[in-house]
Every structure is written in C-alpha cells, then in structure tokens.
Design a protein around this nucleic acid. Structure first.
Lengths: 161, 161
DNA sequence: TTGAATTTTGGTACTGTGCCAAATTTGTTT
DNA sequence: AAACAAATTTGGCACAGTACCAAAATTCAA
C-alpha cells in the first residue's frame, strides 16, 4: 500500500460515498469480513466490492488478505469512527428539524461524504456533544463516540466568564 | 426539447451539482445570458458550458438560442428559485451551528444538490419561514423567497390549541 | 481429489464533469 | 461587401466513481 502510516489529520472529504459506506459497515463487524458480506449488504456484485476494497487497502484504511477478507487498520478504524459520528450528528440535525429517524438517516446518507470534519466538530460542539443519536436501530449503535472530536473545549468545561 | 411542459412536482434531486449552480447563476441575471458569462463565472471551458446548457435546454429548464445565449423557462425559474431557497436554508442551518457565512456557503455548495425539497420545506417550517439568509453578499440576495414552499401551514398560522 | 462456492481479474458501460482542437457562426471593420 | 476577430459549438478524448458480466483463480468441503 502506498500510505501505510497514515498520520494525517482527517479533513472528512477523503473518501467517496461508497467507500464511506463500506467503512461504516466494517466498523459494525468484528474480525475479518468477507467480500460476500459486503456485496450482500449493499446489493452489488462481488466484483464491485473487490475493486473498492482494493482501493481502500491501497489507501491504508483496511488490510486485505486476498480470498480471505478485510479488516480495518488502526487508521481505518479511526476514520470509520469519524464517519459514523458524522452520520449521527447530521442525523440528529435533521431530526431536530422534524424529520423522522428514517428520513433523517436517508437524507444524511446522501450528503455525509461531502461534509467536512471541521463542520461536524462545530455542529457537535454546538449541540453540546450529544451522546445519543437519532437514527440507529440498536441502542449500542445510538451511542455517539467523541474520540475523534477536535473542539477547543467541551460545553461542560466552558468558562462563561 | 423532450419535456416542454414541465408540470411535475419538484423533488429536489433532479439535477447534478453543476446544473444547480448554473440555474442559480441564471436566476441572478436578467435577459439572455451568454456562454462566456457562465464559463467565466465558473472558470471552465466554454465548451463545457455549451454541453451542460444543451442538457438543461433538453430538460426544459432553459431556452437556448444557439450562438446567442440562454434564458430560464418558467419552470426553470421556479426550479432555480427552489435551488436558491435550498441554498439559503442550508446556509442558515450551518450558521445556526456556528459556521461563518463563508464556511456555511461553502459547505452548502457541496451538499445542496443532494437535499430533497421535502426536507428543505420541513427545515424551513421548523425555522419559522425565515426571511433573511446568512450567506449572500447583497441584501437583495439575502431575501428568502417562499413561493416554492409546500408546508401544511405557516408558523404564524399554527393553531396551538 | 474433485467439485462447489467464493473471490478476483479483465472488459465494458454509463454519469458527471472537464479539456482541447477544429469547425461554425456572428459581428465588426475597413 | 469582404475579411477578420471573437464567440460558440462540435467532436474527440479523459478521468473519477460506480456498476455489471464472464472467465479465471483460489479455497473449502465432501
């Protein structure tokens, strides 16, 4: 792979929509994930999956053992966590404007790959670092992980003078 | 053109990002607009503009007189007004979360073509049908036109029981 | 070991967007 | 009115993103 040690900061616009979907999916799986699992999840041809995972591996987000499966790298996991949080924050935003969880999730899925981390951090901060999202099915998936946050401060630490 | 009489409802996902940009630009111009004006605005080759305007004409958004210029059709104007309002509502949304006008405008430009009218109407309603946007330069451009709105009611008409 | 299932490879396609060079049209200037 | 400059269009090509199919390669299980 070209970039084995990804130390770069996350901008948020690095990956195409499909790649973002794959990373989020992998985040919810443990161990090695097979091509077929992904192709079934997204209802696309396995060969389509093979090509995208080859690129994600090349870019350092996943490790790929041919004919075996893929696994997130440390960096890939960090990036996927950001992607999930972005999805959750945007979903909450739409929910706040009255969309149902399903609508919020659908609308978010179309735009999420185009929203920068800087903006998500700002929104997260402005929302008071919410800990529960609106659109996931299980309670586990509703938890919002703030590890990738980069705010100057947390609301509960603000000195209001 | 294939569809000369566009009576369809606006979904909001009909046009590609570039086409949305062109329509919004045309909305700010009066009379016939020349290919060069558009190509200079977006810093692309005139031939690129020619191709997109051919498609927009085919789709019924603009009238195109070859070698002369283009003009919004009635439907194109209505659609462009929706596009502008969508931009303004999304820009306001980002502003509410603390982004500067420039940031809000930039972030909006990336995602706007992917946000449905249904969602925009919901957000607009939830915001109380705001009349002033956040990201335009002139005051004229800041005014929000609610002609394309489709709410069940307006906030000031809500019967709170 | 052999056959079935999975995965990958290679080819192709389509959308969106862009460039370039060449041809066409328009408008202007002698 | 002819000729030239400027603007526009046409046709060819390209690249990213995404997808399919058929064929080849690999793995796994009987």
């Amino acid at each position: 792979m070209t970039e084995n040690n990804k130390n770069e900061e996350i901008i948020g616009l690095e990956l195409s929509p499909r790649k973002v979907s794959y990373l989020k999916f992998l985040l919810g799986k443990s161990g090695t994930v097979r091509t077929t699992e992904i192709s079934e999840e997204f209802e696309v041809d396995p060969s389509t999956v093979t090509k995208l995972i080859a690129e994600l591996a090349e870019e350092g987000y996943i490790d790929h053992i041919p004919y075996r499966g893929v696994k997130l790298t440390a960096f890939g996991r960090k990036y996927a966590e950001f992607c999930l949080k972005r999805h959750q924050i945007l979903g909450l935003m739409f929910s706040h404007y009255g969309l149902t969880p399903e609508e919020a999730c659908g609308e978010t899925s179309r735009i999420e790959a185009l929203v920068s981390k800087k903006t998500i951090d700002r929104m997260c901060f402005s929302m008071g670092c919410p800990t529960v999202s609106a659109c996931a099915k299980s309670n586990k998936e509703r938890r919002i992980n703030h590890d990738t946050c980069f705010h100057e401060s947390r609301p509960n630490l603000i000195n209001l003078q």
